[in-house]
Design a binder for these strands. Structure first.
Lengths: 358, 358
DNA sequence: ATGAAAGCGCTAACAC
DNA sequence: GTGTTAGCGCTTTCAT
């Protein structure tokens, strides 16, 4: 019972066996493995009949190429690495979801790397565990500069940034400044003048995002002729707890704000909790607006500026496919954000047309 | 300029180059590639001095093995596939985070596969895109049975289930029945008798979870001598919107419940929103308890039953490492859940000691 | 303890 | 069009 036979036999028994090789397919189709390879990978110069036969045999045997062997011989891996700071936060999960969908469609596999804290981050760029494993790297929600960027580029593969930036590489992002303006302008239009900001401060993380949002806050106020009172800016950790603490600080002011712009929905939700606990009502006593349009923002009736998450992932996936095809992906694209009006914002007390009945 | 030299030269230039091969290391260390291989993979029968030398050279050249070539020659991939239904929901993200951490520590890479809807799910089990790519598969939050299970097993690799089940394979889970009891018993202890349930119905998804929680509801009521009123059970889509709708249905009853047990925090939050919109106060007019201990549950002051998420991922990761080492992982482990008391539950109106001041 | 050599499964020149 | 032949970079007997 020679080897080939044993294999074929085994195949017949457990039909989707993992160990069918190209050679098996070739032999049963009566062609050389080279031809089989060509037929399977849609090469030109294969007779239609031959191709059909090979395909049929391959199908019967439930043959799948060994990506490893293929890689070894051909060079490309069919894999892309995704580097994310978080997995349990909605935004990153949603980006990942879009990215996965876009890459899956192209038959590309996703290798996941999380770089949560500074230690992991350092370890990642130091050891570069993705070396020799992927065709491209997608960096999500991370600003990569200097040494880190050099290390990344050392791997010699394509790089795409989603919701962050890596100088010199194609990116997908939102206009953080614009998003901030949409939020603050909304409060201003409602008549608010004493507007606080709960700013996320996450060192070495999302890079330009928070800064742009903060700048937007100042610009919006300036355009409205309102002088910025630095007391009204609370810099806190991102996340709900930070938002709650930031709001507490603002409430401690001699003259608290009548409205608050939070850098994220989570922070905004934290702010709302603090307000409630202080016996204040939203939006009657204070308005709150966030950024993200987190799914739970809807449940919390939070006014916010929606930023596309899944879409950023999909766009990044498309970009990856483009660069892998050897196309230039251009500098990058910026996706639009949109104000989502809900029940957490209203005109300030004095300027309200009529008391809310709720 | 022979090939080897060119390579070595290139290496010297860009020191972490991706194209240093074992042969390069071997040559510079003055040994055969066989010995270099042994030294690098900690084999016995290598002289200490030789090993040290090889390691030093490898380090200088920033050599990393080619996982593909290694796989081809040795058989194992150093990769594990993770199959999840969602990425943007907190629970799944958290499990993934734990899993990633546990596997990363062991130098194992994560290949991500999302099977969101029935179509994707069907496609996944039909095409088995992970074939020949991984050493093991971790199925998260999915009940895999019958045909799907057969397909999965066809791949001939280890299988581990986290927050779901695949008959005959090691699992990590929580006691859903117990969690449900903790939630409902809490309401009963507070004095509630007319208790509603907002049950998640997600066909072909998490399998036994919802059923177990529903059973716990009935058992808890039975033990308390309360007859179950089927009107009080609202079966809805999982998620906040479903919860909101479920609560609306319960409020339409002639005699609405004084407390509600929701299968998830998201559904519970939806229920809270409906109550608020109806002008009812939580917990004054109605108590609400969920399951999960979602990060935002804290911000919403929601009483809930915490179920470990990250921990399930870590445990599943440990299990994978064990089975890959060839150890028996046992039938599986069940992680404890815990009641987290917050402000969304209180005794029913009539039985309250004193009116709440808030 | 180390080296030589035979593949692992596939692709890509290069012949025919 | 199709077959032949080299490898891709590594691990692993089998010698020594």
């Amino acid at each position: 019972m020679w080897k080939g036979f044993r294999r074929t036999y085994a195949v017949a028994v457990r039909s989707a066996s993992t160990s069918v090789t190209l050679a098996d397919v070739a032999r049963l189709a009566g062609v050389s493995s080279a031809t089989a390879s060509r037929a399977l990978s849609d090469h030109p110069h294969v007779a239609a009949a031959t191709r059909a036969r090979v395909l049929r045999v391959a199908d019967e045997l439930a043959y799948v190429v060994s990506p490893d062997a293929s890689r070894l011989a051909a060079g490309s891996t069919g894999r892309v690495a995704v580097v994310v700071p978080h997995l349990s936060r909605w935004f990153f999960g949603a980006v990942l979801e879009g990215l996965e969908a876009a890459l899956r469609e192209a038959g590309i596999d996703l290798l996941l790397y999380r770089v949560g804290d500074a230690t992991q981050r350092r370890a990642f760029f130091d050891r570069l565990p993705v070396r020799r494993k992927v065709d491209a790297i997608v960096v999500v929600g991370l600003a990569v500069e200097g040494w880190e960027r050099e290390r990344l580029e050392l791997m010699g593969v394509d790089i795409v940034a989603a919701g962050g930036q890596v100088a010199g590489h194609p990116f997908v992002r939102i206009d953080d400044h614009g998003a901030g303006r949409q939020a603050v302008d909304h409060l201003i239009h409602l008549g608010h003048r004493r507007i606080g900001m709960i700013a996320a401060v996450d060192p070495d993380r999302c890079g330009r995002g928070p800064e742009a949002r903060s700048a937007a806050y100042r610009d919006a106020l300036a355009d409205a002729g309102v002088e910025v009172d630095e007391e009204l800016v609370a810099a806190v950790d991102p996340g709900g707890a930070g938002g709650a603490r930031g709001m507490a600080r603002l409430l401690g002011l001699r003259e608290p704000p009548t409205a608050v712009f939070a850098h994220s929905d989570e922070a905004a939700l934290g702010a709302v909790r603090t307000l409630r606990r202080a016996g204040l009502r939203v939006p009657d006593d204070a308005s709150v607006v966030g950024i993200d349009d987190h799914p739970l923002a809807d449940l919390a009736d939070l006014t916010t500026v929606g930023r596309p998450a899944r879409e950023q992932g999909v766009a990044a996936g498309a970009m990856v496919r483009a660069v892998l095809r050897g196309e230039e992906a251009g500098p990058g694209i910026t996706l639009p954000t949109q104000l989502v009006l809900r029940g957490s914002t209203a005109p300030p007390r004095g300027r309200r047309r009529r008391p809310r009945s709720d």
